[in-house]
Design a protein around this nucleic acid. Structure first.
Lengths: 142, 142
DNA sequence: TTGATATAGTATGTGTAGCAACTAAATGGG
DNA sequence: CCCATTTAGTTGCTACACATACTATATCAA
């Protein structure tokens, strides 16, 4: 076959992802939030009190990374952790007042980012993209 | 709007990329090659003697990362660097015998990976994906 | 009740991404 | 020809991904 670098769709996908990450990183910088930290916050804005383990499952990320992100977010004063009374191994993650207020500023940034990214793409394009990404994910898992 | 985590296409794209990276990483591990190091090698297998700066441009990566990858690849004995005689600031990157031999083992792994990733996707699906990713990239750049 | 096993989270190490500040070499204008 | 500017690459910093090994707590079974 002898494919060239530009023939691998996974490479293009990777490079697209890097650009997206870089862009959202710079947009979030004024709010002292890293991109992955924002994902944690998004889940907590929906519902806080999740354990680190639940965050890890929902985001499909390694628990060591969740631990680091949560420690950072705690250091920034956006969340606080309490030992779960039922299971003292678990830490429940709660928003602080600062963390709660941050939602008003950051959610519009995320939504504007999403609007910019999907500019010029039809609903069909996005659905198709979603389906193809799902297929790719399944191809890898199995 | 109030989108949920799963409504952001960039998040899905990011998670897909992570799975792909993780998979190719484990497939390349037996050859002592990290995924991004493999990208450098792929370019060099097409044509070696490129400077670090040219590698950086072709891969769209920061020169600091290229420098680090190249140092690692040199440590592994896959490449060697020579000062460019015309411009003594530049380092030209050449394959060693080991690096050259590696191609025979690693290219089939990359191509098998690509075949697995794209399994069940039509040519149209892939073209559409490529186009949509290109549009997304352009949306971000501008 | 106790001992094996599973689970939640932490610590550590490697690889990657990109920014800022730096060194050394090249270049171009006065 | 020399000084200012640009360019190639390195070093240091922060954040992220993931693997392995560890501690502490929970649970289940004999």
């Amino acid at each position: 076959m002898n494919l060239r670098v530009e023939d691998y769709i996974s490479i293009k996908l990777h490079q697209t992802d890097l650009k997206l990450t870089s862009e959202i990183k710079s947009r979030l910088q004024p709010y002292n939030l890293a991109p992955e930290q924002n994902l944690v916050m998004m889940l907590l804005w929906e519902k806080d009190g999740l354990t680190q383990n639940q965050l890890s499952e929902k985001l499909g990320k390694d628990k060591t990374n969740i631990a680091r992100m949560v420690v950072n977010l705690e250091g920034k004063g956006f969340i606080e952790r309490k030992f779960c009374p039922r299971d003292r191994r678990s830490l429940e993650v709660y928003l602080t007042e600062d963390g709660r207020k941050l939602k008003e500023e950051v959610v519009p940034v995320s939504e504007a980012f999403n609007a910019d990214v999907t500019e010029g793409l039809s609903k069909q394009d996005l659905e198709h993209l979603d389906q193809v990404l799902t297929k790719i994910l399944n191809n890898i898992k199995g």
